[in-house]
Design a protein around this nucleic acid. Structure first.
Lengths: 231, 231
DNA sequence: CTGTTGTGTAATGTCGACAATCCATAAGTG
DNA sequence: CACTTATGGATTGTCGACATTACACAACAG
């Protein structure tokens, strides 16, 4: 069926890394996004195109487009002829972000219960969390927690929900970076998740929804003083 | 308390219409958005910057930024170095759009029930719908329906929900424009709404949620043949 | 001193030109 | 004939320069 191909085209290490042709605007957007999400660029900080352009050694065009990308992400806002700045983060916005997240995750659980889905990934991330908690590794716990919730959304098999959730989670990253290190008991956080998976596995809709709902709501508690709301 | 101000600053007709300084990119984006939402630009249609620029007598910069705005709205997608096009609309996307809308509206009802809100606007829009149905005015009915749901979301007092819903509703506009005129009985559509308001007024959460849920789900029914999905 | 009016500066908004990339098609090669 | 390699055209990506706007501050008038 498939005739032998010429020998010249030998097997090639397929991780030779194709040359990524990432447009400048994307590179710029990624750098700025990282800065914002890591809290290095605090809410209210002004973003001046010319300054950024000079700093990054590119023209203003990619900078403008990058900032627009971040605007789409909801991380930056523009005031015509005045300037662009990292979107201020009010206590209200934080609360709204978490409440919408709750709705998204409940929706995911509902869909998983209705349509079914393999729960292996969820179990795996639970294990990761437990391990991280025992090792007292905060970073790892946070990563595993995000992986858990990401998997939960993915299993819901709903592209629009996924993209909406991802977009929302950007702000959650920002919020987490801005607020003081959570002094919650690590093992408590880790312990919250397995019952959720169990309830889903049991097909117990009411319990699963209540658990995921409570869980995301608890995460919403935050210290308002850490949020910069500069004008 | 307030000293009399100099007479020179007399009362001024306050509808003197401030000169609107709408950036070109916004004008372009609005025009393109209208074309897409009204179905004149069908999904899959390629958007060539140079052509648009010449056609609208502006340079490519505002065109690019306008297209990016539409990308944020989820109406356009870009393929690097290849082109931009009106995002194809698959049956799956349509279904996802409506299911997410359902979740949003249920969330709104929940919040209204929890926090309370004046329902006058909802009653008013119900009346508009009834009138439109009696006059057999399809356009007016659609407008009133949107106003009803918009008010519902507004009453939930949740900015993020509002912006998410608005963004979602853009696609609903597009879908409605693309699919054949709904042959549903106008008065039936109009009649769906008052019970929802009544249930909210009664504080009957379960009924209100079921009604709004059923209502939005019914709207999701569509004729797949009318959706263009040109690869 | 209060309020108005000018002016300058800094930022965004817009433009036209050039560079980089992809795709299709044709030319070349064993 | 199968496959590779040029080549051309079309499209997006990037750049630097100029236009427009808004704000702050100074100068001025009542």
């Amino acid at each position: 069926m498939t005739p032998a191909k010429p020998a010249l085209t030998g097997p090639m290490p397929d991780d030779i890394a194709p040359i990524e042709n990432v447009p400048l605007r994307v590179q710029v957007a990624d750098r700025l996004r990282n800065a914002i999400l890591s809290g290095k660029l605090r809410p209210g900080t002004g973003l001046v195109e010319t300054a950024l352009a000079e700093q990054m050694n590119v023209s203003r065009a990619p900078i403008r487009e990058a900032i627009q990308i971040l605007e789409n992400d909801g991380l930056v806002e523009t005031i015509a002829y005045k300037g662009k700045r990292v979107k201020p983060l009010t206590a209200r916005e934080v609360a709204e972000t978490y409440s919408l997240r709750e709705v998204f995750e409940v929706m995911a659980v509902r869909r998983i219960l209705e349509n079914g889905a393999p729960l292996d990934a969820l179990y795996a991330h639970c294990a990761e969390m437990t391990a991280a908690a025992e090792a007292d590794n905060f970073e790892a716990l946070v990563a595993a927690d995000e992986a858990f919730h990401h998997s939960l959304i993915r299993l819901a098999d709903h592209d629009l929900l996924m993209s909406s959730w991802k977009n929302l989670y950007l702000r959650i990253h920002q919020i987490m970076a801005l607020r003081n290190r959570d002094e919650r008991n690590l093992s408590e956080v880790a312990g919250n998740h397995p019952p959720i998976v169990q309830a889903i596995a049991d097909g117990d809709a009411e319990r699963a929804i209540k658990l995921i709902s409570d869980h995301t709501r608890i995460l919403a508690a935050f210290d308002p003083a850490t949020i910069v709301d500069s004008q």
